[in-house]
Simulated assay, not measured.
Amino acid sequence: MIKFIFALFILFITLHVTSQTLPDFNPPKNYKLVLEARGDLDKDGKEEVVYAFDTDKTDGKDGLKRILYICKQVDGKIKLWKSNGTILWSSKDCGFCVDAGVNLSIKIKNNTLITEQTFNHNTRHYSTWKNIYRYQNNDWFVIGSTMKDYDTCDFDYQYDINFSTKQVNVAYTYGSCDDDKKIPKDSFYNFKYPFTAIPKMDGFTPGKVELKFPANNKYFYY
């Protein structure tokens, strides 16, 4: 019991000292706020604030690079805790973009940061990457990934990865808007994948990493 209380005390002191040394959050004036979310990310009982900004750096024909800021609230001030320039796609990296910002959502749930980004291939086919990030061992990691590849009439594919357990679950389900069309049989795959480590947030971009099935030539991108 004494060891447990001492560990909590050390954790409190560490978090307190860290929060006191964080810089004030002052994003560049020409950056544009896209989204924000609030919630507890480090289990200290206090809300953090997460911001997604469009930067002034171009990417592609019309797009702008995006940046994520994770901030703490200290004595009524917003302090910058973490910035990341890889996990958010550019503003126009959404294929046939239907509306500004439609390809991005951010929320905090169960002490984790969750992002969802959608690419519209055409009016009925889209792919969505949902990624879950957690602060642990004094760093930020990708602990989960779900990719959904969906067509209104033909198919609904889902690829789930739990990086902590190394479990991969894949579901191929089919349908049709045409009564005369032959529908393929649904199929499901569940296997362990030999990840060498839980990927870190820094340097990770959703949809850019290929994973091949161990037993066949199938693959997907997480």
Rank of each mutant, 00 (worst) to 15 (best):
P28D: 07
K200E: 01
V142G: 06
E47L: 11
T21Y: 08
T146C: 11
V98Q: 13
M1I: 04
Y222M: 05
L113G: 06
N120E: 12
Y222N: 06
D180R: 04
I5W: 11
D156G: 09
F25Y: 15
I114F: 06
G63W: 08
G203K: 09
N131H: 11
C71H: 02
Y189N: 11
G63V: 05
K192Q: 10
F119A: 09
F204D: 06
Y221V: 04
D160T: 05
K181I: 06
L15G: 10
F220H: 01
L33I: 03
K3S: 13
I161A: 08
M1Y: 07
C177G: 05
Y221Q: 02
V142C: 07
I2N: 09
F4G: 08
L35H: 08
W129V: 12
Y135M: 02
F53L: 02
S145Y: 03
L33G: 02
N169T: 14
T115F: 14
L8M: 15
K29S: 15
T58W: 06
K43N: 10
Y174M: 04
F155D: 05
I114Q: 08
G60I: 10
T112I: 07
V209S: 13
D44E: 02
E210F: 06
D151Y: 10
V34F: 09
L104C: 01
M147W: 08
K107G: 08
Y221I: 05
C177H: 10
H125Q: 11
